[in-house]
Design a protein around this nucleic acid. Sequence first.
DNA 1: AAAATAAAAGAGTTTTTAGTCTTTTATTAA
DNA 2: TTAATAAAAGACTAAAAACTCTTTTATTTT
Lengths: 147, 147
Amino acid sequence: MVMGIFSKTCEYAIRSVFFIAHRTASGNRVGIKEIASGIDSPEHFLAKILQDLSRRGIVQSAKGPNGGFYIDERGLKRPLSEVVEAVDGNSIFTGCGLGLAYCSETNPCPLHNEFKAIRNQLKDLLEQTTIADFSESLNLGITKLRK
Amino acid sequence: MVMGIFSKTCEYAIRSVFFIAHRTASGNRVGIKEIASGIDSPEHFLAKILQDLSRRGIVQSAKGPNGGFYIDERGLKRPLSEVVEAVDGNSIFTGCGLGLAYCSETNPCPLHNEFKAIRNQLKDLLEQTTIADFSESLNLGITKLRK
DNA sequence: AAAATAAAAGAGTTTTTAGTCTTTTATTAA
DNA sequence: TTAATAAAAGACTAAAAACTCTTTTATTTT
């Protein structure tokens, strides 16, 4: 009954990539402890999420002293939709609002077209904004990532 | 990782009220077995959901022979948003997309305004359509409720 | 009144999501 | 080359959501 648009895992993923992007703009790295406390998430749980994002090349990591997570030039230009898809899959963009597997253009559920418009708007938003897009507002303290 | 807009419970709830409205337009009642098979949901699980909707007055029920569920005149005019709120609460309309409790107009998360537009669109859609609105398209067989 | 019917209620189990704890591996700096 | 550091990996536990099964209560028909 908590019910966000994304899973909690995905919320942590998005907040963490924003945080990492913001903190590693000048080539440095940031550790899991700092990220977890910076975005108010459970440390080890976030570690799992970042391991996965790392395997997928969305974030980069380095072990050992001065190691940590960072995001390379290409990563900063990635749309947010890639983060969301990596974690929650693409059903949020394509799935039927009423949970009907058959639902399609030719075989629509009662709310098919209405939901399509909303899903497309979400899709556009996530595809048009990149990970880097939010560093600026975070820098200025206009937006925040902690609870 | 299945991730619809609504919980499965809520999807069943919406599909069942559409089904009941459609089947009981002329004052008759429909039993839980028929509803469950009509919308492809687990019978006893749906029973719980309908018990709850019944307590809230969204659907009506009658025990015994010729008993079953139905929706009265007032119920048919209820907006879909009441069904959704009864089951999933209102966080879908009000919650922060990134799961941040503090997030608000004066203390926005990085995606606050973007998500607000999407949430409002969903809210409008659900508030402007009533339970009865879909009987017609179901009658014509244009839309369906089974998987 | 008894039998049949059908929802209500209660008490579970299963599955998924979220979160924790411990050990291992890689890297770096002294 | 050893000690320290930090992510990766693995094996868990906890909580929530989804689902099942059984018993009870209300209603109606015979």
